[in-house]
């Protein structure tokens, strides 16, 4: 028996990569959110953040299972989550950024980072799920129908917090402004046009990300304004997680997340 479990290698067709982008974004975001469990600023919010994480894990599981079916080698959700290497993860880099804990070389984040990211992401996912309701892939459409209900609630909950903190105390306003500075450059990746998206749109699988930008800007802009926050100016910065090239954070996240499966090849859980 091998000392550690072998990685799986996927055959990446555009539909598989398209689905994995959403699946991995939900999974890694949920992984970060779960760091708050037992450490939230107030008990009620601890419970709320965990509910959000649970919803996202559910969405990730459904999408990963479907990706495994599309990919054709018969891999299940756990093989995809725990035995894939970093280069075959396709999440938005945004969700890798620290939320609460620091890592060996990077400082941690705070609740402002968390709730802002929840809001920016939920707004994006909502546009995506809405577009996927009419997917040519019936399974994807079904997943979208369920996920849309959940993400609407996430958006409302997180958006309310953005307003509360943006228009709360001086300290909370300055923390939110700092969080916005950190997160905003990573949102450009949410709207990149590329061949994978192009194929997906052509096949009626789902919307190209670039099509989501203006609706997203409108919704996000309205809440930021209510919160008294100004989005930073756009810069040429572009993250590349959706292409499989990630920030330095994902290595740590995966090392932790995958450790048990890697240590116990053939283990049953």
């Amino acid at each position: 028996m091998a000392a550690t479990a072998e990685s799986v290698r996927l055959k990446l067709t555009p539909p598989v990569q398209y689905v994995l982008r959403i699946a991995d974004t939900c999974l890694i975001h949920a992984q970060r959110l779960s760091e708050w469990c037992g450490h939230g600023p107030v008990l009620e919010e601890d419970i709320a953040l965990t509910n959000m994480a649970l919803d996202l894990i559910g969405q990730a599981r459904a999408l990963l299972t479907h990706a495994g079916q599309l990919e054709g080698q018969g891999m299940d959700e756990d093989q995809l989550a725990f035995l894939r290497d970093e280069r075959q993860f396709f999440n938005l880099t945004l969700v890798e950024l620290p939320m609460r804990r620091s890592s060996a070389h990077a400082p941690g984040g705070d609740f402002a980072d968390t709730t802002l990211r929840n809001f920016l992401l939920a707004t994006w996912l909502k546009q995506l799920w809405q577009g996927l309701l009419s997917s040519s892939d019936a399974q994807l459409a079904a997943i979208a129908a369920k996920a849309l209900k959940e993400v609407r609630y996430h958006q409302q909950h997180a958006g309310d917090w953005v307003v509360r903190l943006g228009d709360g105390t001086e300290e909370s306003a300055s923390r939110m402004a700092a969080a916005l500075e950190r997160a905003w450059p990573y949102t450009a990746e949410m709207f990149v046009a590329d061949a994978v998206d192009g194929t997906a749109a052509e096949q009626g699988l789902g919307p190209a990300r670039s099509a989501l930008r203006s609706a997203w800007l409108d919704e996000v802009g309205a809440v930021l304004e209510e919160a008294g926050l100004k989005p930073p100016a756009d810069t040429p910065f572009l993250s590349t997680g959706t292409k499989g090239v990630h920030s330095e954070h994902l290595g740590f996240i995966l090392a932790e997340m995958q450790s048990l499966q890697r240590q116990h090849p053939g283990g049953q859980w």
Binding site: E44, E45, I47, A48, Q156, D160, R164
Partner: peptide
């Protein structure tokens, strides 16, 4: 019961805490 800063939060938290 639960603690919340405002009514909107209270309703949301009630859903999280009491209707899971």
């Amino acid at each position: 019961s639960l603690h919340a800063a405002d009514a909107a939060m209270a309703v949301q938290m009630a859903r999280e805490v009491y209707t899971r």
